[in-house]
Amino acid sequence: MTKRPNQAPAPPMTRPSFLRGIVGIWYRHALALTRVWKVATTWFVIEPACVLLAMGLGVGRLIGTLPTHGEYASFVTPGMIVGMAMYHAIFECSWGAFQRIQSHSVETLLTTPIGIVQLAAGEILWGATRSALSTIAVGGLALGLGWLDPSAFPGVLLVSMLVGVEFGAIGLCFAATAQTTSTLSLIFTIVATPLFFFSGSFFPMEILPRALQIAAWIAPLSPGVHLARGFATHDLHTTHLAAAVYLVLLGAASFPVAVWLLRRKLLR
């Protein structure tokens, strides 16, 4: 390239890459987590372990085996793992992000050379990381109990991260629109809790009335549960492919909405 004589002087600092912004947000969250790792351990291990053990050992002992789905503990495990992955991503990207918007520390991030897209992507990437950490903890416990096959673990982990991306983006939408913490809590009462119980985690969807079955299959956590169970039982067929496509589409569709809502909220 030839240098023109009247070329403007190069700015003293080179512009950071697009990826730097995303990694930087992720780095911020990782640092924040290491500062509270003792408490964080309880989120990742103790609480989900209680639910998994109660379902697997408690309810599982009453039910024993399901007619079409085998042992109940093995049936419920992938659903629990994916449900917990959803909770972690939602918590991080709705509650966590909302608090940081309110305290203006998100505005500070935007005084660096990053844009809203990188902010949203970094937040969601971290949400998915928390989903993965949760799956490593709960899945590790399930491996130890013999309720999850080690060879199924990578597949289940991948599904958890996709679920993390999807619900991270959905969580950000709520963080960007909620006016108060009480409206924000709607994401738990109208989104997370119904999905957790009615996405096929605890019982096979076939036993629901027909109309509810359709709603349950459309529900955004169902493809994750179905896919994780497919990996767990080593029984993958075309419905799982459809679930994977649906899952990815849900994440891909939520992301631009989250970006749009965040831009509306933060750049006024």
Partner: peptide, 27 residues
């Protein structure tokens, strides 16, 4: 350098980390 009206400090990080994360995000 931009200093907004609110301090916008990150309560989840310490003093040094606030600056380091900012610098890292700035490239």
């Amino acid at each position: 350098g931009v200093v907004t009206q609110q301090d916008g400090l990150d309560d989840d990080l310490n003093v040094r980390q606030n600056l380091e994360v900012f610098g890292f995000l700035a490239g």
